[in-house]
């Protein structure tokens, strides 16, 4: 019984139930209206409910016919480092500017893989910081600060 909780079908179905339920319940606050004069909640309520049904069918199918297709291992290292790289880019872009944001994003992103070397990543970081500054700010004219003092 416990393995069904790790089956891809079952988990995907439950995810759909959660997402559909969230939208369907949220839609109740918007005013449903009638089919003739639809309120803003009508379409989300219908879609959310159908999604809940689809999710339940998928999970039920997993219980009914065990495919034995279990969810693979989650590799947290790339996920966390890339998440951090993007958030770091966003924060530094607003506070210090594009050059620092590029340097930081490349270096944090490099933590995602064991194959990266410090020297190689530093080189990519410098090239990206200079290249992006020239290409996007000087040449394409994006309204980004290169360096805020």
């Amino acid at each position: 019984m416990a393995t069904v909780l790790r089956e891809k079908d079952f988990l995907a179905g439950m995810a759909f139930v959660a997402i559909g339920g969230f939208f369907a319940i949220g839609a109740l606050d918007f005013g449903i209206g009638t089919a003739r004069r639809m309120g803003p909640g009508y379409f989300p309520l219908v879609l959310g409910s159908v999604l809940v049904l689809v999710g339940m069918a998928l999970s039920a199918k997993a219980l009914w016919q065990r495919s034995g297709d279990l969810v693979g291992r989650l590799y947290l290292r790339p996920v966390i480092s890339l998440f951090a790289a993007i958030v770091g880019f966003a924060v530094l872009l607003e506070t210090v500017g594009l050059v620092a944001a590029c340097l930081a994003a490349v270096l944090i992103a490099s933590l995602a893989s064991r194959e990266t070397t410090l020297l190689g990543s530093l080189a990519v970081a410098v090239v990206m910081a200079l290249g992006c500054g020239l290409l996007f700010v000087e040449f394409l004219g994006l309204p980004m600060a290169l360096w805020r003092f």
Partner: peptide, 30 residues
């Protein structure tokens, strides 16, 4: 790929930022 993917991440960041010139989109991306 170890040299390529950090560059891809930076391009993604700049591209997403320029959708609305706002860092909010970057948090959404992450």
């Amino acid at each position: 790929y170890r040299l390529l993917y950090p560059a891809i991440v930076v391009f993604l960041c700049i591209g997403v930022w320029s959708v609305a010139n706002s860092t909010f989109q970057l948090y959404l991306l992450a």
